[in-house]
Every structure is written in structure tokens, then in C-alpha cells.
Design a protein around this nucleic acid. Structure first.
Length: 808
DNA sequence: AGCCCCGGTGAAGTC
DNA sequence: CACCGGGGCT
């Protein structure tokens, strides 16, 4: 039975066997981290510990599911299922459901997604009479979110001189008031946003010592995966829970920390030792995933960062193919070339399409690849983007579910009170909202006690309202007694949504109808799955192991504990699914190329990986050029991208790209320069012959124009001024960076004629047609010309690149 | 109440 | 270019 440990290398094995006390495992990409975690948990159980006492926090629910499956093979599936394993959000949402009433929330609280939250913010801005152009809802929400993730309450925020000063400086002095109102509104609606799930867990553990003790005692062994991406709020939760037994094991790779934008703090892992002085650290440095070439290239890139643990990643795998670089002239051409490359490899290497991934920095880049793949009939699948559950028709149906579960959910109520149309118009809704606001109650409470509020609603409307509330109440009543599918189906039909969409014969209407059917099918699947033990456990068993806790009867009616998967359980499940989680079994097994952002690719691996859009201001993103730490995070992102590849990585960039309907000129990313040249396959373009051999020699001679000319990446940013010498833009041995050489090939050298253009010159552009130069800024080759085209409007073009013919 | 058109504005990443 | 929200018309 303990053979399993023999499948580990010595460090892995030690990491798995050291089950007691604080442990940190620094796990390089592809170093068998999941394997270690799996065996470690199995080992804890083999030593006689109960699965109920193990808490394992993962980055996606899918990772949790897969790990459970693997553990099940060692300890048996019955036991494995009992482990508390899932994302921070889903685990603590479950605990909060159980403890919610202590915090004044109902146990059936609604979880607001980002759209709901934004909608609440918009309402509040209206109510406070603030301009949503200044207080942009998404910015406001971000600010509130980072406050919560730093455990700063609305009250503290509103009274903190520092945040006040910051908000005044950004012309948003009332942000604190918005935060206060936002929390109040959500509380009143019985709703938590994503950050509240963590924030309120902290409140719970802070203010209810008995609860803290209960969970501290329960979770004797705690494991946290992807620890480098935890935020302060998560850090405190873990620290609190682990305080009693200190059997805390965190696993992570500082080199793969890529979520600081949502509050992740790389310092959590870098400083872990300070919190636990008797910490044992294990470094998993052998890579089992990738070729030597890939490992070497990735290591060279990440070595440029300053903030990191020293690691020596190596592999015994074969050397493998060099990294290929594809240069294109436009984003569409990039799509075509990448698709062609995949098509070719698919045949020459007899690779499956599912062996390929296209990874990009931003979702918006997917378009050109989709088009190209369609043209070549290559099957593909896109992760992310607008998720199924965000679609209008799906949100409408879900809003019925949500309102039936929690009547105070104002966001859902507003969505459906007049959909399908039932004669409750905007005027009426406004009156209801006003009354709710005045009395500090939810809209439902106004609707349900309409006669108590003299708000000038005529009897006809009052009747319609009462029909609506009655309908919702009947839905609510059936939820505990019927399974999720029966309820959902009943609601979808009775509410009139299905009918409404069925009669819509436009293609969009048909597709919406199909989506509703798909949702219902999904619910059917859910009903047929076995329930996870955690729900059962929360219904009572949780305290049986735990003598000092008070048994609490949350459910007294026996019907509710029978094996019946209800709609409210379904809703709890889906709100917290990640994109990767939403992938169905069929999709996973289908032979399709995967397309996703690099962020979404974390934890995945593919034999052939295409990393695309390697251009300055795109990757690294222009938003990351303001500080060293942001740039380092971009570099870690690049590191993550490269290390997804098992056999071969391909990198591509385009020299022009559409953005906001305009063509913009792009310079190859500095990250291309940072690759170890020995790992890169140079493109054999004929233009290369133009350069004398010594241009390619690593000479110390500064290169002449035009290559040396302008540096977009530093223009308009004070990045260099702020930290002039801190960053090594490229390793010193390559004085003529690869990317610049590549950019130079193919670039027409006769553009120097453009240096002679003057204001008033009339020129012809192959795309924009004829135009007149109205202004020139700077001196060639930096010169930028404003050209008024007769048919295409005014464009600002860099003369160095612009393909112009002089007309007169 | 619903539809359509216009204009303004905007794309980093996510539980 | 694409989307969304507002305003105006039917």
C-alpha cells in the first residue's frame, strides 16, 4: 500500500512524508507538484488521519476534482471524497452558508458576480448623484475589491486619511461613501460579492472565537496550492486556521505569480519563513514536462527578475526542438501563419489537435486566430471570453432561481420583475426602489407589503405586482422538495421565459432558446451526479468529530437531508466555477486546439504551444510599464507561457495590428530578446542576407539607424526615468537584440526617403489612399506625421514605417 | 412599451 | 471596429 512513495524522487518523497509542522514546497513548473500533493495527502491518511480533518485549497475546482480522483486510487474513493478540497472561494462559501447567521446574513445568501456588483455600483452612483464618467464603476469596484482583500472595511476606508487623500487626488473624494453604501446595499440584499466571501470569513474567524477554535480543530492538516497567488485576506485565513496544529503546507512557485492585479501578494510566499521559523523548505527543481531547450529558455528569461527564490531547474528530458519565431506583417497574417504551422505539425508529427494551444495576452487577440482556424478547418476551442452564465437569457433564468432562493436579491428582482413583460414599468420600479432606499429595506419587502407603503401605485399595477410575488413564492416553496431539474424546468416554463424565446424565430432567438435548453440539460446532469460529502457534512457530521463545538441544527425538516439535489445547491455550485471548471467532459476529450489567455493556461500543459502577440505594449502590456514589479510580473507571465510547452514552443509577433479600428505599428517584445539565443531557431528569411555578417556577430558597436532609432516602449512612460539602471532589458551578451534584427528583416529600407517629406506634401498610402501631410512632429527617423487622408480621415503615422508614395 | 439609430467610448488578467 | 447606453420615434 505504501508503494506509492516509491514513485517519487528523493526531494518529492521527503516533501510528501514531512506531514507534521510547517512546510513550504517551492515547485518549479512541471516538477510534479500535483503528484507530491496527492501523495502527501494520501500519506497523511495512511497514517491514520481522517479525511474530514484535511483542508486542501486549490486554484480551480477542476484541479481539486482531479486530485481527488488520484488520491482515490490510493486510499479508495469513499475516503478521498471526504477531503475538504476546492478553491478558497468555494470552500469558504460553504462554511459561510453554515455560519452566515452569526454575521447577520441568511444562509441562502446570494453570491453577486462582477456584473451584479457593477450594477449595484451604478445604482449607488445615481443615488449619490455622482458622475459615472469620473467614478467609473469598474474602477470603483476594483478599489473596493482591493480594500476588502487588504481587510479594510468600508468604515475604516471612509475614515482613513490615506485613502481619503488618494481618492481626493484621483478626483473621487466620495469613494468611501460609495464603498459604505455598496456594503449596506449588498447586506440588505443578503448578497456577498466574491471578495466578501473571503472578507466575511475573516470577520467570522476574528469575531467568533468559538468558531475559530472549531475550524482550527477540524482542519488538522492544511495544504494550499498556488500559494504565490494568494492575497492578504486569504493569507490571514490560512494563518488563523493553521495556528493550532501548524501542520500547514504551502506549495507554490514565486516565478509563476501572475495575479497581483487581483490582490495576490508574492510576498506571502517570499516571507513565509518569517511566519513559521521552524519551517522546512523543499525545492522541486527537476522538470518532467518539457524539453531541455524549453527549460533552458524559460530559466534564462526568469533569471532577469530580481524578486525571486534561487532555483536551479533542470530536466533529464531530451534536448528537443528549438523555439521557433514567426514574424508577420499584420495580426491577420499572424493568425494565418500560426494556423498553418499547427496544420503542418498536425500532419508531419501526427499530432492531435488537442496537443496544441494558442496562448495570448488578451482575449481580444483571439479573433484573427479563430478566423484562420476556420479557414483551414482546424477544430478549436476558446476558453474564457463571455461565459455561458453571463449570457443575457441565462442570467434572466438564473435571476428567477436566485430570487426564488433569496427574495431580497435586488439585482435579480430588477432584472426579471418585468421580463417577460407583465406591465410593471420603469416608473413603478423607480417608486419601489425609492421606497426601499428610504426605509432601508430590500425591494421585495416593499413589493410584499405594498399596502404599507403609500407610494402611489394604482390598483391595476398592484395586482400585477401581487401576481408576480405570488409566483415567486410558489417557486420558493417547491425548491426544498423537488430536485433542481424539476424546479428549474417549472420556473423556466411558468415564468414565461421559454414561451417568450420560443416565439422568437430570429437566429438570435433560436440560439437563446437553445441556450436555455443547454442550461436545463446541465441542471439535469447536476441532479444525476452524486452529492459531494461536504454538503452532507455541513448538515451535521462536521461537529461529530469535534467535541468542543456546539451541535447546531441548521435543518430541522428531515425531507431536506434526503438525497435530493436542489436548485439552491446548483446555484451555489455554478457561481464559483472558474472557466476551466466549466469545461465539460466532451469538450475535454474532443480533439481541438485550445485557445486561451496565458493566465487561464496556468497549471495546464500541451505538447505544442504557440505564444502569440509578442509585441511591446501588448506583451508586456503597456499598463505594466510603470514599475519594475509590474514588468517583472509580465515576465513571469511569459515564463508561465513558455513552461506550458512539453515538446515545442513557438513565438509569434506582428508588426502591425488593428486597434480601435486603426492600424498601429508594433515593435517586437523585449521578451524575445531575453530568450537564450541558443534555444531559438532563427527564421531563414532571404532579407537576412542584406546584413553583413558582422551585424550578427555579438559586437559591442552600437547599431546604426534605423534599428537604434526610436523606442516605443519607453515613450510616454516614465519607466526609465524612475529606475534607470535596475532593469536588464536584454542579457548583456546580445548587444544586437534578436527582436530588432527580426524586425529589421523585411522592413523596407527605402523608407528613408520619407525623411524628405514636409508639411503640405501629398502622399499615397496603400491602405489609406491619398492624403496631405498636415503636421510633422520630431526628426526622422522618429518623425511622426499627421496625414489628412481624403477617404480615411486623419492618421498619425511614423515615417520610419509608413509605406508612402510621394504624389506631389 | 418597445424598437431603432446614433454617438460616444473603449480592450489585461479573474474568483 | 464593436458594444453599450441614451434619446427619440412609432
Amino acid at each position: 500500500m505504501s508503494d506509492y512513495l516509491n514513485e517519487l524522487n528523493p526531494v518529492q518523497r521527503l516533501a510528501a512524508e514531512t506531514t507534521e509542522g510547517p512546510v513550504m514546497i517551492i515547485a518549479g513548473a512541471g516538477s510534479g507538484k500535483t503528484r507530491v500533493l496527492t501523495y502527501r495527502i494520501a500519506h497523511i491518511m495512511e497514517k491514520g488521519n481522517d479525511a474530514f480533518n484535511i483542508l486542501s485549497l486549490t486554484f480551480t475546482n477542476k484541479a481539486a476534482r482531479e486530485m481527488k480522483e488520484r488520491i482515490a486510487k490510493i486510499v479508495g474513493s469513499k475516503e478521498a471524497k471526504n477531503i475538504w478540497m476546492g478553491t478558497f472561494h468555494s470552500i469558504f462559501a460553504k462554511i459561510l452558508r453554515f455560519e452566515a447567521e452569526k454575521l447577520g446574513y441568511p444562509s441562502n445568501f446570494t453570491i453577486y458576480d462582477t456584473d451584479d456588483s457593477k450594477s449595484v455600483i451604478k445604482d449607488i452612483l445615481k443615488q449619490l448623484n455622482l458622475d459615472d464618467k469620473v467614478y467609473k464603476p469598474s474602477l470603483v469596484l476594483n478599489r473596493i475589491s482591493s480594500a476588502k482583500n487588504s481587510l479594510i472595511s468600508a468604515h475604516q476606508y471612509a475614515n482613513n486619511p490615506i485613502t481619503q487623500a488618494e481618492d481626493r487626488a484621483s478626483n473621487k473624494p466620495l469613494l468611501g461613501q460609495v464603498y459604505l453604501a455598496y456594503q449596506k446595499r449588498n447586506f440588505k440584499s443578503g448578497a456577498m460579492d466574491f471578495d466578501d466571501l473571503l472578507y466575511n470569513t475573516n470577520v467570522l474567524l476574528r469575531d467568533f472565537p468559538d468558531v475559530l477554535v472549531k475550524y482550527q480543530s477540524k482542519f488538522k492538516y492544511i495544504l494550499v496550492d498556488e500559494y504565490q497567488d494568494t492575497n492578504f485576506s486569504q493569507y490571514v485565513i490560512v494563518k488563523q486556521l493553521a495556528a493550532r496544529f501548524q501542520n500547514i503546507c504551502v506549495v507554490g512557485d514565486d516565478a509563476q505569480s501572475i495575479y497581483s492585479f487581483r490582490g495576490a501578494n508574492i510576498q506571502n510566499i517570499l516571507n513565509f519563513e518569517k511566519d513559521y521559523p521552524d519551517l522546512k523548505t523543499f525545492k522541486l527543481e527537476q522538470n518532467y514536462r518539457s524539453t531541455q531547450t524549453i527549460v533552458k529558455a524559460a530559466s534564462a528569461v526568469i533569471a532577469i527578475n530580481k524578486d525571486q527564490f534561487k532555483k536551479n531547474i533542470f530536466t533529464d528530458n531530451e534536448e528537443g526542438e528549438k523555439i521557433k519565431i514567426i514574424k508577420s506583417n499584420t495580426d491577420n497574417e499572424e493568425g494565418q501563419k500560426v494556423a498553418a504551422s499547427i496544420y503542418e505539425t498536425h500532419f508531419t508529427q501526427q499530432a492531435h489537435y488537442k496537443d496544441f494551444a494558442i496562448l495570448y495576452r488578451t482575449n481580444a487577440q483571439s479573433r484573427s486566430f479563430e478566423e484562420a482556424m476556420r479557414k483551414l478547418n482546424i477544430p478549436y476551442r476558446i476558453y474564457g471570453g463571455v461565459s455561458f452564465y453571463q449570457r443575457k437569457e441565462i442570467k434572466d433564468v438564473l435571476s428567477y432561481f436566485r430570487l426564488s432562493i433569496n427574495h431580497n436579491d435586488d439585482e435579480s428582482l430588477k432584472r426579471i420583475i418585468n421580463y417577460p413583460t407583465r406591465g410593471i414599468g420603469q416608473t413603478t420600479i423607480d417608486k419601489i426602489m425609492l421606497a426601499a432606499m428610504e426605509h432601508d429595506i430590500s425591494m421585495w419587502q416593499v413589493l410584499d407589503n405594498l399596502k404599507d407603503f403609500n407610494i402611489g401605485i394604482n390598483s391595476g399595477t398592484a395586482l400585477k405586482i401581487s401576481e408576480f410575488t405570488t409566483m415567486i413564492k410558489t417557486f420558493s416553496m417547491m425548491i426544498p422538495y423537488k430536485d433542481a431539474f424539476e424546479c428549474a424546468n417549472h420556473i423556466a416554463v411558468t415564468s414565461g421565459i421559454v414561451k417568450d424565446l420560443y416565439h422568437d424565430k430570429t437566429p438570435e432567438g433560436v440560439s437563446r432558446y437553445e441556450n436555455i435548453q443547454e442550461l436545463l440539460n446541465g441542471i439535469k446532469d447536476f441532479v444525476e451526479q452524486e452529492r459531494t460529502p461536504q454538503e452532507e457534512e455541513l448538515k451535521g457530521a462536521i461537529f461529530n468529530n469535534n467535541t468542543e463545538a456546539n451541535p447546531v441544527e441548521l435543518f430541522d425538516s428531515p425531507e431536506q437531508t434526503v438525497e435530493l439535489k436542489t436548485l439552491d445547491e446548483f446555484m451555489q455550485e455554478i457561481t464559483l466555477l472558474t472557466d476551466v471548471d466549466k469545461e465539460s467532459e466532451d469538450e475535454k476529450n474532443s480533439d481541438k486546439v485550445s485557445m486561451m489567455t496565458i493566465h487561464a493556461s496556468k497549471g495546464l500543459e500541451f505538447p505544442y504551444v504557440h505564444i502569440v502577440g509578442l509585441e511591446e505594449n501588448l506583451f508586456p502590456s503597456q499598463m505594466a510599464l510603470n514599475s519594475r514589479s509590474e514588468l517583472e510580473e509580465e515576465r513571469r507571465l511569459f515564463y508561465v507561457a513558455i513552461t506550458r510547452a512539453e515538446k515545442k514552443a513557438t513565438i509569434s509577433f506582428a508588426t502591425t495590428r488593428y486597434r480601435f479600428g486603426n492600424i498601429i505599428y508594433c515593435e517586437p517584445s523585449r521578451f524575445i530578446d531575453e530568450l537564450d539565443e541558443d534555444c531559438v531557431d532563427f527564421p531563414r528569411e532571404p532579407e537576412r542576407a542584406k546584413f553583413s555578417d558582422d551585424a550578427f556577430v555579438r559586437s559591442t558597436r552600437p547599431f546604426q539607424k534605423p534599428m537604434e532609432s526610436i523606442d516605443f516602449r519607453t515613450k510616454g512612460s516614465d519607466f526609465n526615468k524612475a529606475e534607470p539602471k535596475q532593469i536588464n532589458f536584454s542579457p548583456p551578451k546580445k548587444l544586437i537584440p534578436l527582436a530588432k534584427r527580426m524586425a529589421a528583416t523585411n522592413t523596407p529600407s527605402d523608407n528613408s526617403a520619407n525623411a524628405n517629406l514636409r508639411i503640405g506634401s501629398v502622399v499615397e498610402h496603400e491602405k489609406f489612399g491619398i492624403g496631405e501631410i498636415t503636421a510633422i512632429e520630431g526628426v526622422y527617423p522618429e518623425a511622426k506625421a499627421s496625414i489628412q487622408f481624403r477617404n480615411s480621415g486623419e492618421k498619425n503615422l511614423l515615417l520610419k514605417y509608413a509605406k508612402l508614395k510621394v504624389v506631389m
